[in-house]
């Protein structure tokens, strides 16, 4: 199918530098759904909203604005695959568009690097584009599946920074403004042939954000552990996410939880793009699933 919708693919850090299968899968699977992701040359860290935002919000705004200007220069909207990046890139774009004082402050700094923020582009999470029937939509996802994930039970971790705080968000679809019990991701999981599974306290944070993972790893993992306990109760084959930082926390975090708390879960954790890749017939090798901290083998045996 010809790609009709083109976006500058803002990569962030953890997807390209720790889970490159997410990047590869996002490009390939989107193309099959009519979305063309083109490189955003020279982009940097979003920057990390927890670390940079905590230190000095003005630097945070200016650094995110630089990434936005790169896409403005291409006259192309941004698509990205990480909730943390969404928090920085979408939210700073939104703030600068609506607050002249912030925009003037940022442009004073950007002048030093021959740039000017104009507010001419929009920012989207790939998950919202996939869900949007005007762009791709659940039906189109279902039609693109060649290897249905039949017989597997999959739970969703939405993460925080795509949908929260909802009072600031401006999604095209009301379903995405439900932050207490959303089910739009479950619809996308069901479209792949898998059974979406609900669990207690689904909307709990992964524990990694706000710089807490670096500041107090035990505290951070204790939150992750609570989620893993609730997931264990419902018996699932995999957890899916739409944020590589959440993915890192659940995937590598399970190894750290084993070391620190002695609890073992062996729960495969896959980004929705990776899951979609498998359902569209990509091999585990094409998704570099061997780079995951927790083996995806038990899950793969059920779907391949």
């Amino acid at each position: 199918m010809d790609a009709k919708h083109t976006y500058a693919f803002y990569l962030g850090c953890i997807a390209p530098n720790r889970y490159p299968g997410v990047e590869a899968a996002a490009i390939k699977t989107s193309k099959k759904l009519g979305i063309d992701l083109v490189p955003l040359k020279g982009a940097s860290c979003c920057p990390a909203p927890g670390a940079f935002g905590s230190i000095d919000l003005n630097v945070f705004y200016a650094m995110a604005a630089r990434n936005l200007v790169l896409a403005e220069q291409m006259k192309t909207d941004i698509a990205l695959v990480c909730n943390g990046c969404y928090k920085s890139i979408w939210e700073v774009n939104h703030k600068l568009k609506h607050n002249d004082d912030l925009r003037d402050g940022v442009n004073e700094v950007l002048k030093e690097v021959d740039m000017e923020y104009k507010g001419t582009i929009n920012v989207y999470h790939l998950a919202e584009l996939l869900y949007d029937p005007m762009i791709a939509g659940v039906e189109k996802i279902r039609e693109s599946v060649t290897n249905p994930l039949t017989g597997t039970r999959i739970a969703v971790h939405y993460g925080c920074h795509l949908i929260k705080p909802k009072k600031d968000r401006e999604f095209a679809h009301q379903e995405m403004l439900n932050t207490e019990g959303p089910t739009w991701m479950e619809e996308m999981v069901a479209a792949l042939g898998a059974e979406p599974v609900e669990y207690r306290y689904k909307m709990l944070c992964c524990g990694a954000g706000g710089g807490v993972r670096g500041y107090d790893i035990v505290h951070s993992l204790d939150i992750t552990n609570e989620k893993l306990l609730n997931l264990k109760d419902v018996g699932i084959d995999a957890l899916t996410d739409i944020c590589p930082f959440c993915q890192l926390q659940f995937d590598r975090g399970q190894i750290e939880i084993q070391e620190k708390f002695g609890a073992v879960y062996n729960l495969p954790v896959l980004h929705y793009s990776e899951l979609l890749g498998l359902a569209q017939g990509m091999s585990p090798q094409e998704l570099a699933l061997d780079l995951h901290g927790i083996s995806c083998e038990p899950f793969l045996q059920k779907v391949l």
Binding site: L11, C13, I14, P16, N17, R18, P20, G21, E23, A24, P39, L40, K41, G42, A43, S44, C45, P47, A48, A51, Q285, E286, L287, A288, L291
Partner: peptide, 27 residues
């Protein structure tokens, strides 16, 4: 330019996936 920079293991994996060894970012 990255908070979590690339490394050699990841570069090799990227090439196997048909991606560039370094992503088209500041890297």
């Amino acid at each position: 330019g990255h908070g979590v920079p690339n490394n050699d293991v990841n570069r090799a994996a990227r090439v196997k996936l048909g991606l560039t060894a370094d992503p088209p970012t500041t890297h």
